[in-house]
Design a protein around this nucleic acid. Structure first.
Lengths: 334, 334
DNA sequence: TTTACTAGAGTTAGCGCTAACTCGACCCCA
DNA sequence: TGGGGTCGAGTTAGCGCTAACTCTAGTAAA
């Protein structure tokens, strides 16, 4: 066991100041009626003894931990990192701390996290881009009172929601439409693994057909949302389908992986292959050629999610939804 | 206040199972002597009531939170993100959670974090690349029993340490030497803000002089370790000193910012300007031209720091230090 | 038969804090 | 002169858990 420095307790402060514990507690919280004189005196003793409240004791009686859980599939992905930054910043100002749980793109791990994150550990949870199906996710979050999910819809009584302005999956259709308009005819699509739900792909294909854009199921692949996975999927897809003249990717990291694969196969971008990504991370604008992608203000997504969560934590269980705009930013990869 | 789902307590389980609370506690911890029959029965009741231990109550008596604090200057910087990933992964396996504190490159904020991070909140702390001076940092961490710092040295009794193999600041000298050998003669240096300590820069200049590499104080600038700051510092530095034929940056993000500034000023890399970064983030290898930089296995730094911290948390207060190798990876920016 | 141990529990006493109630002194107004 | 309000505290009773000690019946050794 660790040697813990012997900290002063409320009782120590009370004794030293010659008042009751409640008086000290009231001074700390600024509640109740305390004379200026007493308040001043207690403050001096607190200072002198370097008293700090014991979080666990406080939590035990108030049932509040002032800790927020942030669950994301990959904290190495700049997209989530910037959201996290927004969340952390917001909650820091509000006196909450953020506990991080990284599922590492592993659905089982995500389940374990959600299962173990007890109400005695956190006051609320933000779940980003869950890789679980609704059937898996919903039972796991039902027991939590304060939940906000990002990039996912939820039955309204379970928690608030932050999503894109465009209905899910529709972004890829927009991208395809733009590519078609700029003359591309054989458009590949590397989808992120969770969206493998055929519903999504079916929708995508139907929409394309409605727009008279050529459709071919073998042009569509799925992969994990990492650069490495994008690179490997890109290599295979481009080798097997040299006819492709454009690829849409589920996010920037994957798009950039595909870009690397394309370059290695001697393809010129955008002449031979156009590329569209998904969330406008810094790297997207700095590669050559810069990547066309959908803008998303990730920091703002984070602060919005945090704000909606705070409302729930503070007892306002109204359902709120916030939609962030994601316009297509056209750069030189298309 | 939030509606918290009414959770079963130890007492509920004990009553329902017809045993004492201690028996239930023993079953949970696998300690003490319990008959197989009782154990089985208690487990069933736990399952049935969906009992989960109350963390705060446990912490209050054991003084252990099973929470680790991770303090970094910028969680948006992939360098720290990957370290964090290593830390989180390691501690997750060990049954600890990680609390995140982002100082946002703001020394005052870092101080506030370290001051508020009480032993009643975390069992130990990892401090990455602190932007504080030793004089500021040391008093703040003295009160914590379990500390590991990354990229900083520490009096041995205060905590363990993970640093580069090369003495601090020496990396820039290595980079300069390499640049000189490849024919560069007017070498700029964009240092990170904390290292502004003139000691560091003096050392750098002395070493260069010893190697007969031209030295000029006005070629050296400092900036915050972000892409944006690197970009802006680069713009100014390159405009004022068109004679520069190489720039060394404190980290990759800054180097890439300088690269962008150089490209905008019409400089060709590496023909007109050679560039060296600092920590080999993914983006460094994906820009054109790929950036020469120092390799660092960030995930491994994270797991090593976590391992050293766990030892301290578990009561082994021996001083350990781990040095990670950082070799120069030569790419096309030089 | 007594002693002595062991397996398998139970009992007691807090950890440090706060919610909710209580209490005395003082003042104001009818 | 007594009823009621306010100020500035204090008292009581836990929150849910675990460390450390106690207790009892059964068994083995002397």
């Amino acid at each position: 066991m660790t040697r813990k420095p012997q900290r002063a307790t409320l009782a120590d402060v009370a004794r030293e100041a010659g008042v009751s514990m409640m008086t000290v507690s009231r001074v700390i919280h600024g509640t109740g009626r305390i004379s200026d004189e007493t308040r001043q005196h207690v403050r001096e003793i607190i200072e002198k003894l370097e008293y700090r409240p014991n979080r666990a004791a406080r939590t035990l009686v108030t049932k509040r931990t002032y800790m927020i859980g942030f669950v994301a599939p990959d904290i190495t992905n700049p997209y989530f990192t910037e959201i996290l930054q927004g969340v952390e910043e917001f909650f820091w100002r509000e006196g909450y701390n953020v506990m991080l749980a990284n599922s590492n793109e592993n659905p089982e791990r995500e389940k374990a996290i959600l299962d173990q994150l007890e109400s005695t550990m956190v006051d609320g949870i933000i779940v980003c881009s869950s890789r679980l199906s609704d059937d898996e996710l919903i039972p796991l979050i039902e027991k939590h009172s304060a939940i906000v999910v990002v990039n996912r819809n939820l039955p309204h009584h379970l928690g608030s929601v932050v999503t894109t302005l465009h209905p899910r999956g529709y972004r890829a259709v927009l991208a395809a439409k733009y590519l078609y308009e700029t003359g591309r005819r054989r458009i590949g699509y590397v989808n992120l693994v969770r969206s493998i739900s055929s519903v999504n792909l079916d929708m995508f294909m139907q929409e394309l057909q409605a727009l008279h854009i050529p459709v071919n199921p073998s042009w569509y692949a799925t992969c994990k949302p990492t650069w490495q996975a994008g690179y490997e999927t890109g290599k295979v897809l481009l080798a097997e389908h040299p006819e492709l003249d454009a690829v849409i990717a589920g996010n920037d990291l994957v798009a950039l992986g595909v870009m690397r694969a394309a370059v290695e196969q001697g393809l010129r971008i955008p002449q031979d292959l156009a590329l569209i990504g998904g969330d406008d991370i810094l790297m997207a604008s700095q590669v050559t050629p810069p990547l066309t992608t959908f803008r998303s203000d990730k920091y703002h997504i984070g602060t919005m999610a945090a704000e909606l969560l705070l409302r729930r934590v503070e007892g306002d269980l109204t359902y709120y939804e916030h939609h962030y705009d994601d316009v297509l930013i056209i750069r030189e990869s298309t």
